[in-house]
Amino acid sequence: MTTATAPTRLLEVEHLTMRFGGLVAIDDVSFSANDKEITAIIGPNGAGKTTVFNCLTGFYKPTVGRLTLHHPKGDFLLEQMEGFRIPQKASVARTFQNIRLFPQMTVLENLVVAQHNVLMSASAFSLAGLLGLRRYKDAERESIELARYWLDKVGLLDRADIDAGNLPYGDQRRLEIARAMCTEPVLLCLDEPAAGLNPKESAELNELLLFIRDSHKIGLLLIEHDMSVVMKISDHVIVLDYGCKIADGSPEAVRDDPNVIRAYLGEDEDEELPPEVLADLKIDTPKPQNMPGSE
């Protein structure tokens, strides 16, 4: 329907507010994410990034706000849906900051469990499955093929039958993304996918995420601290600080935004920062006038 040059809105977040008692974790944040694009949410620790994710994926009910997902099947108002229905009906998948695999199940089983709803209806709530009807067997074969496809993409094909908990950390991260993709989402939310990865793994992750965006034509929402990931692959960056949105735009524009620099580096612009902090932030110097305009 739409061409690649004119992106369509996939997710619209309007006036999202989340209060925990007296604490305002997110304060009137509005943003939107486009289909077939990678939208990154960045911000210092405690800025409310994961809370935004938890609202989007139904783990929290937002205090105020509207979260609209423009799904091919129609619009879904995520804030009104029960937690498990968001991935089931609205096809929003997510990963977690601290990996949540099924550690004592094999890699393949993890990916097949992700296709639970498809398989459940194919097995007619276990009846067809118990009787061993062809209908279920075909569905199971298809689910294995989908799992095999993603295992191949994340490079875990030869480890399909070992327990997920025995995988190295980086593999577990990629498996979690593969598992989320096995639910065939329209929006994939990744909570710090590069955390704890070495530079090589991080580069592989970039490729995987770009592949997902370009080949599967879905929208990605990304929380990330690793600026090498954010700056290289995101099409759009949103910056949160203390629950408020302080910047929104292209990676280059956000990087030069004085508000963002202040949020990351502190109020005093003349303050000299230790070199390792600067290296972490991948910003050459805290002074805006010395910043490169673009990459």
Partner: peptide, 17 residues
């Protein structure tokens, strides 16, 4: 498999619908 997945991690189960 959903029973076993539930034993392993309920939150992950919910995130998979």
């Amino acid at each position: 498999r959903a029973w076993e997945a539930l034993r392993e991690d309920e939150i992950a189960c919910r995130s998979l619908g």
